[in-house]
Design a protein around this nucleic acid. Structure first.
Lengths: 346, 346
DNA sequence: TTGTAGGCGTTATCAT
DNA sequence: ATGATAACGCCTACAA
């Protein structure tokens, strides 16, 4: 099994008695090449089975058309949709996507950033690992003017693109919704506090309570670090066992909220009458579980598309300035049975 | 904002008054380089902020260490877990992963295969688009001895690696399980028939019925092409409206099975007494929905890992033969409430 | 309109 | 133990 050598522009040039530069230009419809030549070249290239070597082109032009993506884990609904959006947009614009997952480990993230840099990605999109506090490992992208987009889990301060939702107002909206349903004691399941996604949601929660003259009770705020289904169950067991249990729960994600629902059902609590619940993300489960889980939409695909567009347009523009630009995408409250006390017809 | 030029081995060589070849070797701990030099080189490289250019290395060595992945869509539980497994294994072995999605379109698949080839991936892992019947667009990988792994949705015939589950026996097991629960009229929701994943599951279903002397009734077999939640609902509405409705349903995936459950619940049917249900994949929803959905495990992460390993070990081995190797991973029946008639304590 | 030539950063080969 | 050099495939000034 011989590895048939690749056909190169040199082979085509030889066959047609032309210079490699002519071939190179003909293949990209360069205006100074005659139509006749272009046609001829393309035909022969096709016949010979020529496939451009993007590596060589990248090396030469210092421009790879590869977008690097660095996320915590791929197999989560939000993240896989995010990536899907990135890939879709990239593909349309002729870019490739290289993905890596940090598994929420800071050291992995540092190494992967290095690896992506070594691959000479033309841009990088990152959603930070849970562990990450310091983001100086991304500085070299800035220095080299490689566009960097932080998405969703973004650092507090960094001179670059950020694509996110307004977590504060989303947290506020979620809480306000529960208040409007008549809840007086609202608990909150939150995630790791140094990730500002969660601290902002919590701030929105607190401010909504204050605004509506409800007390902020620390015993109703449960820190869940990863906000898994199990953590949701555990947290709600704790909450329901309190001397004065909550009548509403705002969970900072849907997985944990589903844990809450299951727990409440096991205990025979009526949803939403005894306990109204709202989650965050609008994962597929939210509309499938019974009762349907009210939640906040998290425009994952769109965030991916937007991030990719930022990279691409940055590369196209000639400005070579450092850019700090924050894009907020809209979120909405989706009301389903888990919190809808007004139409109790169910 | 000047784009600081990259530091190259040439820069290091100059600084240390050594040859580039020495630097190159020192950086990879080549045995013929003195320890002293190695240390010195590495130290200076570090100081100067040297980052290897894998593109250049790839061009030179004709070896990119990039695994190309071509799937239908990323944002599905099975696929995202598959990719996660691939990425994890690749990363450990020092490979990168480039992902693309065909959105189940044949022409996109063809173009993406081309694009991956142009990126000179060192191997490719593909789960075919629903539409794809002819796979000759993958021939060039074989010709060039670039390892190719088809995973899950594989072609019927092709001289290459295939990683899959035994869909026939899985379909058989699922059906047998329902029979053991006492079902006499078992319906089946199946997907596109030219994808042998589905035709095999169906064959297993049919054979199980035959083996247990149950009639195979064509009106109980519903073709759902994409097997979405909505298709599941629609199909079950049809089935429940039959003069002689089924008492068991085997859906070829979980999404559609969830549609069945919701539909049955809406109609006030008792699960599993009136209608026992089993799905396929063991998606996260299966354990979350109420009643829990019985299903067949589909070892997605492991399939990804296995596929990546096939690529990597092929590249390491020196055999240059064309290889036809089919790896079957095990599946299991997971019994949950949706089909468990024996312990009705719920 | 087409050709010439040099270089992108690395590594393998063949010296020294 | 280290050096010099060519080559990987492509692109782009510059020249003709």
């Amino acid at each position: 099994m011989e590895d048939n050598k690749d056909v190169t522009i040199y082979d085509i040039a030889e066959k047609l008695n032309l210079a490699t530069s002519t071939i190179s230009r003909a293949l990209k419809d360069h205006p100074t090449i005659s139509d006749k030549t272009i046609k001829k070249v393309k035909k022969v290239a096709e016949e010979m089975g020529y496939r451009p070597n993007t590596l060589a082109a990248g090396l030469r032009g210092n421009n790879t058309k590869i977008i690097g993506v660095l996320v915590s884990r791929i197999n989560r609904p939000f993240v896989s949709s995010l990536i899907s959006g990135i890939e879709e947009t990239a593909q349309k614009a002729g870019y490739s996507v290289m993905i890596t997952q940090s598994h929420d480990s800071y050291t992995d993230e540092v190494n992967l950033a290095e690896a992506l840099y070594s691959s000479r990605v033309c841009g990088i999109i990152c959603s930070l690992a849970m562990e990450t506090k310091d983001v100086s490992h991304f500085q070299k992208f800035i220095d080299k003017n490689i566009p960097l987009v932080f998405v969703d889990r973004v650092p507090r301060e960094f001179e670059t693109y950020r694509v996110m939702i307004d977590n504060y107002s989303a947290g506020y909206k979620a809480t306000k919704h529960l208040i409007e349903q008549g809840c007086k004691r609202i608990a909150h399941l939150t995630g790791s506090q140094h990730r500002n996604t969660y601290s902002e949601r919590k701030r929105g929660y607190t401010d909504a309570l204050i605004e509506f003259n409800l007390p902020v009770d620390e015993e109703l705020i449960v820190d869940c670090t990863y906000l898994t289904f199990e953590e949701g169950e555990k947290a709600s067991n704790y909450l329901f066992d309190l001397a004065s249990p909550p009548d509403g729960i705002f969970s900072a994600n849907d997985s944990a909220a589903v844990g809450v629902i299951q727990c409440a059902k096991k205990r025979g609590l009526k949803i939403p009458q005894d306990i109204a619940i709202i989650g965050f993300n609008d994962d597929p489960i939210a509309s499938i579980i019974d009762p349907g889980l009210s939640t906040i939409t998290h425009p994952s695909v769109k965030m991916g598309q937007t991030s990719a567009k930022k990279i691409i347009s940055h590369l196209k523009s000639s400005k070579k300035d450092n850019i700090t630009e924050i894009t907020f995408l809209n979120t909405e409250v989706v009301v389903r049975e888990s919190s809808n006390r007004h139409s109790i017809e169910k």
